[in-house]
């Protein structure tokens, strides 16, 4: 089965140079585990040097849809990916907008089901089962039929290590493509974001009273000093059960 993997260069958090993104690498590693026919696709304005990290980390051949900067990649990508039954991509790119919207747009454009935040994929009977990562360690199993789009969670699996030989052997094939122009965005240096705060009409006196009393609920912490350790342990267990924090 042919699998398409979408990649995009990420911004290195320290040096700011382009590098391979964690989630995209995980998608590549997952695809290579599932099939031997893996096609790697990229659409955008990045040059070959920015994609070289992916060659060194296991991609043998990268198909690039070369677009001018500030063009939308969705329609050329959707056109190129129509014949693939399974499309994998990282849940979020570490570069560009990094909005995590592309898998959703692609699934919508191709009219396919989307499996979000996948950790693992496996085939059972006619269906594909995906293990989905949810916050706080919850794992959900989803099942769907092909064709599918799956976004792979950054925690999924690590790709192979960086290799100079693979970097030299890898090829990047460029093809010109066109996409609609995206609206211009204004970039600003990062600063501390200003939170929305509701205008409060209370007097200064009331505010001082509030400051003395502390935040609501915050000052209401229960302190248990009485009893021996066994009784105190029971208090803790009762608290955990009352707030449904344990399931026994």
């Amino acid at each position: 089965m042919k699998i398409a993997v979408l990649i995009a260069p990420a911004v290195h958090p320290v040096s700011g140079r382009p590098c391979a993104g964690e989630a995209d690498l995980a998608a590549l590693a997952l695809a290579q585990r599932l099939s031997s026919q893996v096609d790697v696709w990229y659409a955008g304005a990045a040059d070959d040097a920015a994609l070289a990290d992916y060659l060194a980390r296991g991609a043998t051949h990268i198909h690039t849809l070369a677009l001018a900067a500030g063009r939308e990649v969705l329609s050329p990508l959707a056109e190129a990916l129509q014949d693939y039954a399974l499309v994998l991509c990282g849940a979020r790119a570490g570069g560009g907008d990094g909005s995590g919207l592309l898998p959703y747009q692609l699934a919508e454009q191709l009219g396919r089901a989307l499996l979000p935040d996948v950790l693992d994929l496996s085939k059972s009977d006619q269906q594909w089962q995906a293990l989905q990562a949810l916050p706080k360690g919850v794992r959900r199993t989803l099942a769907a039929k092909l064709p599918l789009v799956a976004s792979v969670h950054a925690r999924a699996a690590s790709a192979v290590g960086w290799s100079y030989a693979r970097l030299q052997q890898g090829k990047i094939q460029r093809k010109a493509a066109t996409g609609a122009a995206l609206p211009q965005v204004v970039l600003e240096p990062a600063r501390r974001a200003r939170a929305l705060v509701a205008a409060s009409k209370v007097s200064g006196h009331a505010r001082m009273q509030g400051a003395i009393a502390g935040g609501e609920g915050k000052s209401a912490g229960i302190v248990v000093k009485q009893g021996d350790s066994v009784e105190k342990a029971q208090v803790v267990l009762d608290y955990l059960r009352q707030h449904q924090l344990v399931d026994f």
């Binding site: 911004v11 290195h12 907008d97 990094g98 909005s99 965005v185 600003e188 990062a190 974001a193």
Partner: peptide, 22 residues
């Protein structure tokens, strides 16, 4: 997505490696 500030002149989001975008 990733809106960090809602202001009168628009919304700001965190742009990977490029500060805020308006």
């Amino acid at each position: 997505t990733d809106v960090v500030e809602i202001a009168a002149d628009g919304v700001r989001r965190r742009q990977p490696g490029a500060g805020f975008s308006l």
